[in-house]
Design a protein around this nucleic acid. Structure first.
Lengths: 221, 221
DNA sequence: CATCTATGTTGACACTGACAACATGCGATG
DNA sequence: CATCGCATGTTGTCAGTGTCAACATAGATG
């Protein structure tokens, strides 16, 4: 048989991070990346621990040194997704100052994250976990996605720009709207014509604007 | 070992339907029911063709006489779900006459279907299909869920009750809102405290009412 | 009654998740 | 620098799964 040449995976960044880099370079991250790529290319049905290991260039049992089981690997993918989504939301919101503009930016960012990272989004919110997923390890000082949304809406209410009262119903409305839109796009329910990120962003902008309008404090006649 | 008594499945309705009822009673439907029950009890990870066959009281290869593969069985579950969801929406909308009331009823029905039939909802919209899912076979004269929503919104616009203009954006807003809320509830993102159908219905009513308010035609000064 | 075909069974194969036992090399300790 | 321990990766194995082919049987059809 073909003597499968095991590539040394000579990563250029040896002392870049202080995480584990024993034999492989950083097998743990390599496995996460391989899983994401595999889902993107072949779908969830093709997500196999053994194929993930193959893509990372290790044998079929190596992943068990980094993840207790298949679900733990998916949990790592979800954590990566939650961190990345929060980061993209912060980046889109940063240039904006007004609460309404920040809310708008957050909504568009939520949808666009799902559009650009369907595997992450599906793992984060899909039916793939039997045990409840643990909270993602947030680096200190970095705000999570949900927290960003809640605080922005509260700021909008405090500034008298959004409907007064409990913030929870407004938060849920906003979350439901963007989450529903993202889900429908990612799961292909909106027709195959809509595949480009450009179309998706246009939809996200229209819908998020409608949302912000709807949550605005009604002007006094 | 135990001589597994194969129950005759003496169904009381022999000539009720003209579908297949050869050796078993109606193995095809029995398999669909078993799959739904299995997902509800053990989750998607436990959904196994062989376990489904076991629950139906047949051997492991029997399902292949009715479904080409595992995905075809899931497709049957999805079809059943789409038909049931449309039926429940029609039933909740039937007593209402005004377009706004009908829209409100449709939204609540959508969310409550998901809450009451999580396995169906997840199969319908989850990432479980590699090939595009075929349209469910609607009995003639029965309107599908999406069609119900579109027509109700158009009626509201025609009556001057909803914002004028293209109906598509409004439709997408409504669909996204209820779909997002349903997904968040079903996937347990709203906390474990929210499990009862009563809590879910309260949420669905509040959010759907907010939606209808937001889609209303703004009153002139 | 004879036969045909849809339905269900038996047996097999490649593949998977998971574990145990073993091998290896990095990095600390002397 | 030499040694050693432990984290990391490998080999081998097992039960369980999806799928197919060959076979068996029962209801309908003539």
């Amino acid at each position: 048989m073909a003597t499968r040449g095991r590539r040394k995976q000579a990563a250029e960044a040896p002392a870049d991070k202080d995480k584990g880099r024993y034999h492989h370079g950083d097998l743990r991250q390599a496995l996460v990346d391989a899983a994401v790529a595999l889902i993107a290319e072949e779908g969830f049905g093709a997500l196999t621990l053994r194929e993930v290991a193959r893509r990372a260039g290790v044998t079929h049992a190596a992943p068990y040194r980094h993840f207790a089981d298949k679900e733990a690997l998916l949990e790592a993918v979800a954590h990566e997704g939650f961190r990345a989504m929060a980061r993209e939301m912060r980046e889109r919101m940063a240039p904006e100052t007004g609460p309404l503009e920040r809310l708008y930016a957050a909504g568009v960012a939520y949808v666009m994250f799902a559009v650009r990272h369907p595997p992450h989004f599906r793992v984060m919110f899909g039916p793939h976990f039997t045990r409840p997923i643990s909270a993602p390890p947030e680096p200190e000082g970095e705000e999570g996605a949900f927290s960003l949304l809640v605080n922005t809406i509260k700021a909008g209410q405090a500034a008298g720009l959004l409907r007064a009262g409990e913030s929870q119903p407004l938060t849920l409305t906003a979350w439901s709207l963007v989450h529903g839109l993202a889900s429908l796009i990612v799961d292909g329910q909106l027709g195959e014509a809509l595949q480009g990120a450009a179309d998706a962003e246009a939809l996200a902008r229209v819908q998020t604007r409608l949302l912000v309008e709807g949550l605005k404090r009604p002007a006094h006649g």
